[in-house]
Amino acid sequence: MNTTGNEHYISFQPENCTQCHGCEIACKAWRELEYGVQYRRVRNLWRGDYPEIRSFTLSLACLHCVEPACAAVCPSEAITKEAEGGVVTVDEALCTGCKLCAEACPFGVPQFGEEGVMQKCDLCHSHQPADCDPPCVDTCPGKALVFVKEGASEKRNAEQRLVRLISSAE
């Protein structure tokens, strides 16, 4: 475990994102996701009005929040925040597919495929060797996605930055 903190997540720097969608499809291909299910989404957001209008991009997957709202509302305790790295994981055997987590998540992260149980980004913990970045990070041409390990307060700040970014769009 990293000694500088115990929160792992993938941070997003909008100024480095060219909206190529490489991360979105890297995730779909590497995790062999079914049609309609997305662990990572790339969205175009607008700010201002024509002709003083600009756009910016959001590449969004599970933030593995310090206090995950999804876990708090889960009636079957299927969602856990792990001690190591703070990764938020789903126990598919316990999930009943009630979708309360989807309502609770401020970022629209929880996905439900054919089987009806919640699935989402798990940072590819179980899929990648230790010295390799998750495929979405590995494929990013502008290093807009960075795998970071830091303390809970920095992590909370990152969550707030994302909330502000989303709410700044019109």
Binding site: H21, G22, C140
Partner: peptide
Amino acid sequence: TRVAGMDECPVNKGAICAKGHAAP
């Protein structure tokens, strides 16, 4: 099954785009 960008290639330097990942 899938694709990853090649760090050693000076063109893409390890990155690869959505189309590249969809090759299979």
